[in-house]
Design a protein around this nucleic acid. Structure first.
Length: 330
DNA sequence: CATCAGGGCCCTG
DNA sequence: CAGGGCCCTGAT
Protein backbone atom coordinates (compact mmCIF):
# COMPACT_ATOMS: atom_id res chain seq x y z
CA UNK A 1 0.00 0.00 0.00
CA UNK A 2 1.33 3.37 -0.93
CA UNK A 3 1.23 6.55 1.07
CA UNK A 4 -0.58 9.53 -0.36
CA UNK A 5 1.59 12.61 -0.71
CA UNK A 6 -0.04 15.99 -0.48
CA UNK A 7 -1.25 17.29 -3.80
CA UNK A 8 1.01 19.96 -5.24
CA UNK A 9 -0.04 23.45 -4.32
CA UNK A 10 0.78 26.19 -6.76
CA UNK A 11 1.64 29.67 -5.51
CA UNK A 12 -1.33 32.03 -5.33
CA UNK A 13 -2.36 33.25 -8.72
CA UNK A 14 -2.59 36.94 -9.59
CA UNK A 15 -5.34 38.44 -11.63
CA UNK A 16 -4.38 38.15 -15.24
CA UNK A 17 -7.22 39.50 -17.30
CA UNK A 18 -10.84 40.52 -17.07
CA UNK A 19 -13.66 40.49 -19.55
CA UNK A 20 -17.39 40.75 -19.88
CA UNK A 21 -19.67 38.18 -21.41
CA UNK A 22 -23.24 38.79 -22.48
CA UNK A 23 -25.28 35.60 -22.35
CA UNK A 24 -28.33 35.42 -24.54
CA UNK A 25 -31.39 36.44 -22.54
CA UNK A 26 -33.02 35.09 -20.55
CA UNK A 27 -30.16 33.97 -18.34
CA UNK A 28 -30.48 32.81 -14.74
CA UNK A 29 -27.17 33.16 -12.92
CA UNK A 30 -27.76 31.12 -9.78
CA UNK A 31 -29.80 28.45 -11.55
CA UNK A 32 -26.91 27.98 -13.93
CA UNK A 33 -24.01 28.07 -11.50
CA UNK A 34 -25.54 26.30 -8.53
CA UNK A 35 -26.85 22.76 -9.01
CA UNK A 36 -28.01 21.62 -5.58
CA UNK A 37 -28.61 18.04 -6.71
CA UNK A 38 -24.99 17.65 -7.75
CA UNK A 39 -22.15 16.18 -5.76
CA UNK A 40 -20.65 18.94 -3.64
CA UNK A 41 -16.94 19.15 -4.46
CA UNK A 42 -13.94 21.33 -3.72
CA UNK A 43 -13.52 21.89 -7.45
CA UNK A 44 -15.74 24.95 -7.57
CA UNK A 45 -17.31 27.44 -5.22
CA UNK A 46 -20.65 29.15 -5.52
CA UNK A 47 -22.25 31.91 -3.53
CA UNK A 48 -25.15 34.03 -4.76
CA UNK A 49 -23.95 35.98 -7.78
CA UNK A 50 -20.36 34.68 -7.65
CA UNK A 51 -18.81 31.49 -8.98
CA UNK A 52 -15.23 30.23 -8.87
CA UNK A 53 -13.70 27.36 -10.78
CA UNK A 54 -10.51 26.31 -12.52
CA UNK A 55 -10.10 25.55 -16.18
CA UNK A 56 -7.33 24.08 -18.26
CA UNK A 57 -6.21 25.95 -21.35
CA UNK A 58 -3.58 23.85 -23.04
CA UNK A 59 -1.16 23.05 -20.24
CA UNK A 60 -2.18 26.04 -18.13
CA UNK A 61 -4.46 25.64 -15.16
CA UNK A 62 -6.31 28.94 -14.88
CA UNK A 63 -8.45 30.25 -12.01
CA UNK A 64 -11.76 31.79 -13.07
CA UNK A 65 -14.17 34.03 -11.18
CA UNK A 66 -17.55 34.73 -12.71
CA UNK A 67 -19.81 37.43 -11.29
CA UNK A 68 -23.40 38.32 -12.02
CA UNK A 69 -23.30 41.82 -13.48
CA UNK A 70 -26.70 42.02 -15.11
CA UNK A 71 -30.31 40.96 -14.90
CA UNK A 72 -32.18 38.01 -16.20
CA UNK A 73 -33.48 39.97 -19.18
CA UNK A 74 -30.22 41.87 -19.72
CA UNK A 75 -27.59 39.43 -18.56
CA UNK A 76 -23.93 40.27 -18.21
CA UNK A 77 -21.11 38.32 -16.61
CA UNK A 78 -17.93 39.81 -15.21
CA UNK A 79 -15.13 37.31 -15.75
CA UNK A 80 -11.75 37.55 -14.04
CA UNK A 81 -8.92 35.16 -14.88
CA UNK A 82 -6.08 34.29 -12.54
CA UNK A 83 -2.74 32.76 -13.32
CA UNK A 84 0.88 32.74 -12.24
CA UNK A 85 1.89 34.92 -15.15
CA UNK A 86 0.26 37.18 -17.66
CA UNK A 87 -2.12 35.29 -19.92
CA UNK A 88 -1.84 35.90 -23.63
CA UNK A 89 -4.79 37.35 -25.50
CA UNK A 90 -5.16 33.95 -27.11
CA UNK A 91 -5.37 32.17 -23.76
CA UNK A 92 -7.88 34.67 -22.44
CA UNK A 93 -9.96 34.22 -25.54
CA UNK A 94 -9.79 30.44 -25.12
CA UNK A 95 -11.07 30.68 -21.54
CA UNK A 96 -13.97 32.88 -22.60
CA UNK A 97 -14.89 30.64 -25.52
CA UNK A 98 -14.84 27.67 -23.23
CA UNK A 99 -17.12 29.43 -20.74
CA UNK A 100 -19.54 30.24 -23.53
CA UNK A 101 -19.65 26.57 -24.44
CA UNK A 102 -19.72 25.05 -20.95
CA UNK A 103 -22.54 27.29 -19.81
CA UNK A 104 -24.34 27.38 -23.17
CA UNK A 105 -24.32 31.14 -22.94
CA UNK A 106 -25.65 31.64 -26.44
CA UNK A 107 -28.43 29.06 -26.15
CA UNK A 108 -31.73 30.22 -27.58
CA UNK A 109 -34.41 29.25 -25.08
CA UNK A 110 -37.33 31.05 -26.72
CA UNK A 111 -39.25 28.00 -27.89
CA UNK A 112 -38.41 26.16 -24.68
CA UNK A 113 -39.95 29.08 -22.81
CA UNK A 114 -43.05 29.15 -24.98
CA UNK A 115 -43.56 25.43 -24.54
CA UNK A 116 -42.99 25.26 -20.80
CA UNK A 117 -45.04 28.34 -19.98
CA UNK A 118 -47.99 26.40 -21.36
CA UNK A 119 -47.38 23.51 -18.98
CA UNK A 120 -50.20 23.66 -16.46
CA UNK A 121 -48.48 21.73 -13.73
CA UNK A 122 -45.09 23.40 -13.72
CA UNK A 123 -45.40 26.79 -15.37
CA UNK A 124 -44.66 28.65 -12.13
CA UNK A 125 -41.54 26.59 -11.63
CA UNK A 126 -40.39 27.24 -15.19
CA UNK A 127 -40.96 30.97 -14.73
CA UNK A 128 -38.94 30.87 -11.54
CA UNK A 129 -35.90 29.32 -13.19
CA UNK A 130 -36.21 30.46 -16.80
CA UNK A 131 -32.80 31.18 -18.23
CA UNK A 132 -31.09 28.39 -16.29
CA UNK A 133 -28.74 26.31 -18.43
CA UNK A 134 -28.26 22.57 -18.23
CA UNK A 135 -24.55 22.88 -17.64
CA UNK A 136 -21.53 21.89 -15.62
CA UNK A 137 -18.26 23.60 -14.76
CA UNK A 138 -16.41 20.44 -15.76
CA UNK A 139 -14.79 19.28 -18.94
CA UNK A 140 -15.89 15.93 -20.32
CA UNK A 141 -12.96 14.18 -18.66
CA UNK A 142 -13.66 15.83 -15.33
CA UNK A 143 -17.36 14.98 -15.34
CA UNK A 144 -16.49 11.44 -16.33
CA UNK A 145 -14.32 11.19 -13.22
CA UNK A 146 -17.20 12.51 -11.12
CA UNK A 147 -19.61 10.09 -12.80
CA UNK A 148 -17.23 7.27 -12.08
CA UNK A 149 -17.04 7.88 -8.34
CA UNK A 150 -20.82 8.22 -8.29
CA UNK A 151 -21.31 4.69 -9.58
CA UNK A 152 -22.92 2.09 -7.40
CA UNK A 153 -22.46 3.88 -4.11
CA UNK A 154 -23.79 6.74 -2.01
CA UNK A 155 -22.68 10.35 -2.06
CA UNK A 156 -20.60 10.09 1.07
CA UNK A 157 -18.33 7.45 -0.36
CA UNK A 158 -18.19 9.24 -3.69
CA UNK A 159 -16.81 12.29 -1.91
CA UNK A 160 -14.27 10.12 -0.12
CA UNK A 161 -13.08 8.53 -3.37
CA UNK A 162 -12.79 11.88 -5.09
CA UNK A 163 -10.85 13.32 -2.17
CA UNK A 164 -8.40 10.42 -2.24
CA UNK A 165 -7.85 10.85 -5.97
CA UNK A 166 -7.42 14.60 -5.67
CA UNK A 167 -5.00 14.27 -2.76
CA UNK A 168 -2.84 11.96 -4.83
CA UNK A 169 -3.13 13.37 -8.34
CA UNK A 170 -4.84 16.76 -8.13
CA UNK A 171 -3.52 20.29 -7.79
CA UNK A 172 -4.51 22.89 -5.25
CA UNK A 173 -4.98 26.34 -6.69
CA UNK A 174 -5.31 29.60 -4.75
CA UNK A 175 -6.60 32.80 -6.26
CA UNK A 176 -8.69 35.76 -5.19
CA UNK A 177 -8.82 34.46 -1.63
CA UNK A 178 -10.22 31.02 -2.49
CA UNK A 179 -8.52 27.65 -2.64
CA UNK A 180 -9.82 25.02 -5.03
CA UNK A 181 -8.76 21.56 -6.05
CA UNK A 182 -8.28 20.80 -9.72
CA UNK A 183 -8.53 17.41 -11.38
CA UNK A 184 -5.33 16.06 -12.93
CA UNK A 185 -4.77 15.74 -16.65
CA UNK A 186 -5.43 12.29 -18.17
CA UNK A 187 -1.71 11.82 -18.89
CA UNK A 188 -0.98 11.99 -15.16
CA UNK A 189 -2.43 8.51 -14.78
CA UNK A 190 -0.57 6.97 -17.68
CA UNK A 191 2.17 5.39 -15.57
CA UNK A 192 -0.12 4.55 -12.66
CA UNK A 193 -1.09 0.94 -12.17
CA UNK A 194 -4.58 -0.26 -11.42
CA UNK A 195 -3.39 -1.62 -8.09
CA UNK A 196 -2.10 1.78 -7.11
CA UNK A 197 -5.51 3.26 -7.90
CA UNK A 198 -7.21 0.49 -5.95
CA UNK A 199 -5.08 1.55 -3.02
CA UNK A 200 -7.13 4.75 -3.01
CA UNK A 201 -10.25 2.69 -2.23
CA UNK A 202 -11.99 3.25 -5.50
CA UNK A 203 -12.51 -0.48 -5.99
CA UNK A 204 -13.41 -1.85 -9.41
CA UNK A 205 -13.49 1.73 -10.72
CA UNK A 206 -9.68 1.62 -10.94
CA UNK A 207 -9.81 -0.34 -14.18
CA UNK A 208 -12.36 2.02 -15.70
CA UNK A 209 -10.42 5.14 -14.69
CA UNK A 210 -7.19 3.74 -16.12
CA UNK A 211 -8.83 2.84 -19.38
CA UNK A 212 -10.66 6.05 -20.15
CA UNK A 213 -7.77 8.22 -18.95
CA UNK A 214 -5.53 6.50 -21.44
CA UNK A 215 -8.13 7.00 -24.16
CA UNK A 216 -8.19 10.72 -23.43
CA UNK A 217 -4.42 10.87 -23.32
CA UNK A 218 -4.03 9.32 -26.76
CA UNK A 219 -6.96 11.35 -28.16
CA UNK A 220 -9.08 8.31 -28.83
CA UNK A 221 -11.66 10.26 -26.90
CA UNK A 222 -11.67 13.94 -27.82
CA UNK A 223 -14.25 16.33 -26.41
CA UNK A 224 -13.95 18.80 -29.27
CA UNK A 225 -14.70 16.11 -31.82
CA UNK A 226 -17.61 14.75 -29.82
CA UNK A 227 -19.19 18.20 -29.64
CA UNK A 228 -19.72 18.11 -33.38
CA UNK A 229 -21.63 14.82 -33.46
CA UNK A 230 -25.39 14.65 -33.74
CA UNK A 231 -27.34 13.37 -30.75
CA UNK A 232 -27.45 9.76 -31.85
CA UNK A 233 -23.79 9.49 -32.82
CA UNK A 234 -22.79 11.21 -29.59
CA UNK A 235 -24.85 8.77 -27.57
CA UNK A 236 -23.24 5.81 -29.33
CA UNK A 237 -19.77 7.24 -28.84
CA UNK A 238 -20.30 7.80 -25.12
CA UNK A 239 -21.91 4.39 -24.57
CA UNK A 240 -18.95 2.73 -26.24
CA UNK A 241 -16.58 3.98 -23.55
CA UNK A 242 -15.79 1.19 -21.10
CA UNK A 243 -17.52 1.96 -17.82
CA UNK A 244 -19.98 4.43 -19.34
CA UNK A 245 -23.56 3.20 -19.51
CA UNK A 246 -26.97 4.78 -20.05
CA UNK A 247 -27.06 6.90 -16.89
CA UNK A 248 -23.62 8.44 -17.31
CA UNK A 249 -24.35 9.00 -20.99
CA UNK A 250 -27.53 10.90 -20.13
CA UNK A 251 -25.67 13.10 -17.67
CA UNK A 252 -22.81 13.84 -20.05
CA UNK A 253 -25.08 14.48 -23.04
CA UNK A 254 -27.24 16.86 -21.05
CA UNK A 255 -24.70 18.77 -19.00
CA UNK A 256 -21.47 18.66 -20.99
CA UNK A 257 -22.97 18.67 -24.48
CA UNK A 258 -26.24 20.54 -23.83
CA UNK A 259 -28.36 18.04 -25.71
CA UNK A 260 -31.76 19.18 -24.55
CA UNK A 261 -33.54 16.09 -25.81
CA UNK A 262 -31.24 13.66 -24.01
CA UNK A 263 -33.77 12.42 -21.45
CA UNK A 264 -33.01 8.82 -22.31
CA UNK A 265 -32.74 6.96 -19.02
CA UNK A 266 -34.48 6.88 -15.64
CA UNK A 267 -32.73 5.03 -12.81
CA UNK A 268 -34.94 3.25 -10.26
CA UNK A 269 -34.24 5.68 -7.43
CA UNK A 270 -34.99 8.58 -9.77
CA UNK A 271 -38.24 6.97 -10.88
CA UNK A 272 -39.50 7.12 -7.31
CA UNK A 273 -38.79 10.83 -7.18
CA UNK A 274 -40.31 11.59 -10.58
CA UNK A 275 -43.37 9.57 -9.60
CA UNK A 276 -44.03 11.92 -6.72
CA UNK A 277 -43.31 15.02 -8.73
CA UNK A 278 -45.24 14.21 -11.89
CA UNK A 279 -48.02 11.93 -10.71
CA UNK A 280 -48.23 12.53 -6.98
CA UNK A 281 -47.85 8.83 -6.27
CA UNK A 282 -44.95 6.69 -5.10
CA UNK A 283 -44.22 4.13 -7.84
CA UNK A 284 -44.77 4.83 -11.53
CA UNK A 285 -42.65 2.65 -13.84
CA UNK A 286 -39.49 4.18 -15.26
CA UNK A 287 -40.39 3.48 -18.88
CA UNK A 288 -43.78 5.14 -18.50
CA UNK A 289 -42.09 8.22 -17.03
CA UNK A 290 -39.68 8.25 -19.92
CA UNK A 291 -42.48 8.07 -22.49
CA UNK A 292 -44.71 10.64 -20.78
CA UNK A 293 -41.95 13.19 -20.27
CA UNK A 294 -40.76 12.81 -23.84
CA UNK A 295 -44.26 13.31 -25.18
CA UNK A 296 -44.82 16.29 -22.93
CA UNK A 297 -41.60 18.23 -23.51
CA UNK A 298 -40.33 16.76 -26.77
CA UNK A 299 -36.95 18.08 -27.85
CA UNK A 300 -36.64 19.85 -24.49
CA UNK A 301 -37.29 16.85 -22.27
CA UNK A 302 -33.83 16.83 -20.70
CA UNK A 303 -33.81 20.59 -20.09
CA UNK A 304 -37.34 20.55 -18.66
CA UNK A 305 -36.53 17.70 -16.31
CA UNK A 306 -33.37 19.53 -15.28
CA UNK A 307 -35.46 22.53 -14.14
CA UNK A 308 -37.92 20.35 -12.26
CA UNK A 309 -35.23 18.23 -10.62
CA UNK A 310 -33.03 21.09 -9.51
CA UNK A 311 -36.04 23.04 -8.21
CA UNK A 312 -36.78 20.14 -5.88
CA UNK A 313 -33.21 20.11 -4.57
CA UNK A 314 -33.24 23.89 -4.14
CA UNK A 315 -36.29 23.50 -1.94
CA UNK A 316 -34.46 20.83 -0.01
CA UNK A 317 -31.64 23.26 0.77
CA UNK A 318 -34.20 25.51 2.47
CA UNK A 319 -36.38 23.01 4.28
CA UNK A 320 -36.33 19.31 4.92
CA UNK A 321 -38.43 17.20 2.55
CA UNK A 322 -39.11 14.00 4.41
CA UNK A 323 -40.13 11.72 1.54
CA UNK A 324 -37.09 12.86 -0.42
CA UNK A 325 -34.62 12.18 2.37
CA UNK A 326 -35.82 8.59 2.36
CA UNK A 327 -34.90 8.26 -1.32
CA UNK A 328 -31.50 9.88 -1.60
CA UNK A 329 -29.33 8.96 1.41
CA UNK A 330 -26.44 11.35 1.42
C1' DC B 1 -20.50 -9.99 14.40
C1' DA B 2 -22.63 -10.84 9.62
C1' DT B 3 -25.23 -9.27 5.99
C1' DC B 4 -26.68 -6.05 2.63
C1' DA B 5 -27.53 -2.34 -0.60
C1' DG B 6 -25.82 1.57 -2.78
C1' DG B 7 -27.04 8.24 -7.52
C1' DG B 8 -23.97 1.88 -12.46
C1' DC B 9 -22.03 -1.14 -15.65
C1' DC B 10 -20.14 -5.41 -17.66
C1' DC B 11 -20.64 -9.93 -18.75
C1' DT B 12 -22.77 -14.24 -18.99
C1' DG B 13 -26.31 -17.54 -20.06
C1' DC C 1 -32.58 -9.35 -22.29
C1' DA C 2 -32.41 -10.53 -17.26
C1' DG C 3 -29.73 -10.97 -13.48
C1' DG C 4 -25.43 -11.87 -10.91
C1' DG C 5 -21.10 -9.87 -9.56
C1' DC C 6 -18.09 -6.11 -8.72
C1' DC C 7 -14.68 -2.87 -4.61
C1' DC C 8 -15.75 -0.88 -0.60
C1' DT C 9 -18.29 1.28 3.22
C1' DG C 10 -21.76 2.43 6.48
C1' DA C 11 -26.27 1.06 8.03
C1' DT C 12 -28.98 -2.53 10.11
Amino acid sequence: MMTSPQSPRVAPYAQSGTAQLSPRAPFHFDGTFRKPSHLPTTLYRWSPGVFYQTMRVGSKLVGVRIRDRGRRTAPRLGVAMFYSERLSAEDRRAVLNELVFRYALDADLSSFRTKTYRDEQFRTLFRRWMGTRASTPYSLYELLVIGLVLQNTQAKRSVQMLEALLARFGTKVRFDGVELDAIWEPATLSGVTEDELRGLRIGYRAKILSRFSQQFDNHEIDETTLRMLDDLALRDALLSVYGVGPETTRILATEVFHRHAAFTHVAPWQAKIYSRLFYGKPAVAADKILRDVTRRFGEYSALAVHYIWEDLFWKRTRRRIDWLEAEIRL
